[in-house]
Design a protein around this nucleic acid. Structure first.
Lengths: 141, 141
DNA sequence: TGTTGACCTTCCACTTGCTGGAAGGTTTAA
DNA sequence: TTAAACCTTCCAGCAAGTGGAAGGTCAACA
């Protein structure tokens, strides 16, 4: 199949597929005489795999490693597990950061008069004029 | 004060301060004869404000609007409140996305044998071979 | 046969928010 | 005087693509 069909079936854009190819992730099965890329079932499966991995937030570098493991019949599941564990640690960190932001922004939001007046505790807090609301919780800055 | 001192006191890097200037966010008070940037207390406060706003995840465009509001004595706190509300909605969305990823990755991680064998349900799931674990929860894809 | 439209190709530019480095000018202290 | 530590501008690059230009190809239809 051509790149357009591979795109439709994999859920990726043709642009992305070309980009991933340039990054060395998934090459087409071969090129036809007219230069068109040709993808077979195996390659399509790799593209789907890639889309899933990206949806879980793996970087292209990590996707490259995952594809290597997908292709390697002698892989150790340990290695796959480790990549997922790293990803999970990263996600946990991001969630914690976002929750810390949310907590303080919620607090700030609730204290803003939200009217036609200029007085605004959000502005004061960001400017460092109001009682400190830090992301880290401590009073050190 | 020079950019180096402004950087130290604001917690930003000199590179970032120059970048923000290029983006039209915070200009130095003036340039000295030798071309060096000079920052006074007000400008330093704006830089600190900027650092805080960035720490809360506001984009530079949003920071630009926030700085405009900081400087505007006739601002309406409504406007500030709205920016924060938008930011909060974005944060909530991100958290929800990350939690959905985490949920599925946790599940996958627990099912992987995590040993020397090649059999790995994580790989199978990403390849779409195993019982579907989707981020959206539905069976539609 | 012509031509229209939908494909496909490559390449370059743009995005966000910086960071690093090169090449060079200034200031300060020993 | 000279070295270190500033400062200046500009250029390149990161992730992970998207958009568009310029052009080749293919299938269908009159």
């Amino acid at each position: 199949m051509n790149i357009g069909e591979a795109a439709k079936k994999s859920g990726l854009s043709a642009k992305s597929i070309r980009y991933y190819e340039g990054m060395g992730l998934v090459l087409p099965s071969f090129r036809k005489d007219n230069g068109y890329r040709e993808y077979d079932g195996d390659k399509l499966q790799e593209l789907v795999f890639l889309r899933h991995a990206r949806q879980f937030g793996f970087s292209l570098e990590e996707c490259k490693r995952l594809l290597g493991l997908l292709r390697d019949p002698n892989r150790r599941s340990q290695e796959v597990h480790e990549l997922v564990a790293n990803r999970l640690a990263d996600i946990d960190q991001r969630i914690a950061d976002l929750l810390a932001m949310k907590r303080v922004l919620d607090e700030m939001s609730g204290q803003c008069p939200n009217n036609e007046e200029s007085k605004c505790s959000i502005i004061d807090t960001l400017a460092g004029k109001a009682p400190r609301q830090t992301l880290s919780g401590g009073s050190h800055e």
